[in-house]
Amino acid sequence: MRLAVCDEQWLFVSVLAAALTQHGHQTVLTTDEPSVLLDQAADIRPEVCVLDITTGSPSAVEVAEHLAELEPRPAVVLLTDSCQEGVWEAHERGFLQGVVNKSCAFPVLMATIDRVAAGERVSEGWQQAERRVHRGVVDALTSRELEVLRLVVQGHSTQLMADQLGVSRHTIRTHVQQVLRKLGVHGRGKVARAAAAAGLVDVATLSSTEGTQG
């Protein structure tokens, strides 16, 4: 597998890259500068990027968001001992496919790399309390409101949602208004971003439906 490794500690980058190479991976880039990774990623086409950026700019989350714009898009594993603000939101939204604590054994990282490359979303070495997922919004929505939310994100009209759920247009409009209120947004056009930020839809769903809202 083609890997890129970026960590602010050059010695750690070198040791990790050597270990990954010994276990059969092709490490196509090792750097301690996130700007180098972003400049070269489109050309070197890594399948998975392993990174840790805790200081300076761009942040790990910003790097992951930029990498998500590439085609083909690499999976991103954050290997860190300190999660910055926004990490768990990025994980829920699908920008960071893996978040691994540096205290984990090397085989855990190896397994995570394989799993994210296969399309999984992975978290290893973190207590549930450390994962600041937006559960308040999830818990506030009823099961029917969640159904309506996902149909709104998919760009369905009020009539189509009413037909699919077997209810009246008035009932759908009521549900949509409740969803908007609980997400704290005004207008359907902002629902997708708010839903992704709350971990209710992933970034792939968001990307495929953006531009259909009206």
Rank of each mutant, 00 (worst) to 15 (best):
H91A: 12
E92H: 14
E92L: 15
E92A: 15
E92S: 15
F95V: 05
L96V: 05
Q97D: 13
Q97K: 15
G98V: 11
G98N: 11
V99R: 15
V100P: 10
S103K: 15
C104E: 10
A105M: 06
P107G: 08
V108K: 02
L109G: 12
L109P: 13
L109S: 09
L109W: 11
A111S: 12
A111R: 13
A111G: 09
T112W: 01
T112Q: 04
I113M: 04
I113A: 01
R115F: 02
R115L: 12
A117G: 10
R121E: 07
V122H: 03
S123M: 07
S123I: 15
S123V: 15
E124I: 00
W126N: 00
W126P: 09
W126R: 01
Q127F: 06
Q127E: 12
Q127C: 08
Q128G: 12
Q128E: 09
E130L: 05
E130R: 12
E130S: 08
R132D: 04
R132I: 00
R135P: 00
R135E: 05
D139R: 14
D139F: 08
A140W: 00
S143E: 14
R144F: 03
E145D: 06
E145L: 12
E145A: 05
L146S: 04
E147S: 11
E147P: 03
V148Q: 07
L149A: 09
L149S: 10
R150Y: 01
V153G: 02
Q154E: 13
Q154I: 00
Q154S: 10
G155R: 09
G155S: 02
G155K: 10
Q159F: 07
L160M: 03
L160A: 13
M161P: 05
M161I: 15
D163F: 02
D163E: 11
Q164V: 07
Q164M: 05
L165W: 07
L165V: 10
S168N: 05
R169C: 08
H170P: 03
I172E: 02
I172W: 08
R173C: 01
H175M: 06
H175K: 06
V176A: 08
Q178R: 14
Q178L: 07
V179N: 10
R181N: 08
L183T: 01
L183P: 08
G184K: 06
V185L: 11
H186P: 01
H186M: 03
G187Y: 06
G187I: 12
K190V: 04
V191T: 03
A192T: 15
A192W: 08
R193T: 13
R193K: 12
R193G: 09
R193P: 02
A194V: 09
A196I: 05
A196G: 11
A196H: 04
A197N: 11
A198Y: 06
G199H: 09
L200D: 05
V201N: 07
V201Q: 06
D202Y: 05
A204T: 13
T205Q: 12
S207Q: 10
